[in-house]
C-alpha cells in the first residue's frame, strides 16, 4: 500500500550568528491513511520543526515531504494544524472562528445554509454546541482547544497536525480531550500526527510512536507499533500487559538511551532557593 504522507531525508539547517545549526537530519517517515502517529522526544529535539515542515510553515533545507503525490511547498487547509495555545481569534465567537475556516475552504462548494450546518456539526463533534456563541475569553482552556480542533476538522484535512494540543491543560481536562479525540478519530478515520511530551498520552492514542533523538542533528531514533485493539479504554488499559510494555519501551528510550543532560541550576548560597522548571 502506498503511503499517504512521506517524509524523505528531511533535514533542517538554521543560520545563526555562530554559524549554521543543523536541527534535523535524515528524517524518513511514511504514514498510511487513517493512521494516528505520535512524535515524542525531549524538548528542543525538533519535533515541532518536523510538524511545521509537514504543515508547510517551514521549508526543509534538505529532502522533502510528499502528501498524496504532491510535494508540500506552502501551508494549506488540507494539512490543518491544531496549535498548542489554541490560536483562536479572540474577537470572534467559537462559531465565527470555525466559520472563518469553513468559508475559506468551502466557499465555492457549499451554500450559506450548508456552511452553517457544517460549522455546527463540527462544534457538536467536539461537544461545544452549547457554547458556540461565546468568545474565547469566556470559555475555559480545554474548551478553547476543543474549538481549535473543531476548526481544524472542519477543513476536512487529509492530515490533522497537532502540536502538543493538550500540553497546557490540567490532567483531568486532558483526559477528557483525549477521549474526545479517540472518539473523533474512530468516527472520521482522520490521519493524525501529534506531538506530545506525555508518554501515557502517546501510548493511549497512537498506532505508532515515533521517538526522536536529541538534537543537534536530531532524527528518528525508534518507531514503536502500539498493537492495542480499538476502542481503547484508559481504565482497562492501566494494567494491560501490552500497554505497560509499550509505555516501558518509550520511557526506556527517553530516559536511558536518550537521556537529556542538562546542567543543574547553580546555587551560590543556601538561602536562594531557585526551582527551575524542567520543560
Amino acid at each position: 500500500m502506498k503511503a499517504l504522507l512521506e517524509l524523505s531525508n528531511v533535514g533542517m539547517k538554521f543560520d545563526t550568528p555562530k554559524g549554521q545549526f543543523e536541527a534535523l537530519k535524515d528524517v524518513n517517515l511514511k504514514i498510511e491513511s487513517g493512521e494516528f502517529v505520535s512524535l515524542i522526544g525531549h524538548s528542543g529535539c525538533g519535533k515541532s520543526t518536523v510538524l511545521n515542515i509537514v504543515a508547510g510553515l517551514l521549508q526543509a533545507t534538505d529532502g522533502g515531504v510528499i502528501l498524496d503525490k504532491q510535494e508540500v511547498t506552502e501551508p494549506g487547509p488540507e494539512r490543518a494544524v491544531v496549535f498548542q495555545n489554541h490560536s483562536l481569534l479572540p474577537w470572534l465567537s467559537a462559531f465565527e472562528n470555525v466559520e472563518l475556516a469553513v468559508k475559506q475552504v468551502f466557499k465555492k462548494t457549499k451554500s450559506k445554509a450548508e456552511i452553517r450546518d457544517w460549522v455546527e456539526h463540527n462544534l457538536e463533534l467536539v461537544h461545544m454546541a452549547h457554547a458556540m456563541h461565546k468568545k474565547p475569553d469566556e470559555i475555559s482552556g480545554g474548551m478553547k482547544q476543543r474549538v481549535g480542533i473543531a476548526r481544524a476538522l472542519a477543513m476536512q484535512p487529509q492530515v490533522l497536525l497537532m502540536d502538543e494540543p493538550f500540553g497546557a491543560l490540567d490532567a483531568l481536562t486532558r483526559a477528557h480531550l483525549q477521549d474526545s479525540l479517540m472518539e473523533i478519530h474512530a468516527q472520521l478515520g482522520t490521519t493524525v500526527i501529534m506531538i506530545t511530551h506525555d508518554v501515557d498520552e502517546a501510548v493511549l492514542l497512537s498506532d505508532r510512536i515515533v521517538m526522536m533523538t536529541n538534537g543537534p542533528s536530531a532524527t528518528i531514533g525508534e518507531i514503536l507499533d502500539v498493537k492495542l485493539p480499538r476502542p481503547r479504554d484508559r481504565l482497562a488499559l492501566a494494567d494491560d500487559p501490552t500497554f505497560v510494555r509499550c509505555r516501558q519501551q518509550v520511557l526506556q528510550f527517553l530516559y536511558e538511551k536518550q537521556r537529556k543532560v542538562e546542567p543543574m541550576p547553580k546555587r551560590n548560597s543556601a538561602n536562594t532557593e531557585r526551582v527551575r522548571k524542567r520543560a
Binding site: 504543515a55 510553515l57 501551508p75 494549506g76 487547509p77 490543518a80 495555545n85 490560536s87 481569534l89 475556516a101
Partner: peptide
Amino acid sequence: SQDLTNVSRVLR
C-alpha cells in the same frame, strides 16, 4: 501574534 499569522497561512 505569530500564531494568528500561522492560522492565516494555513487557511491561505
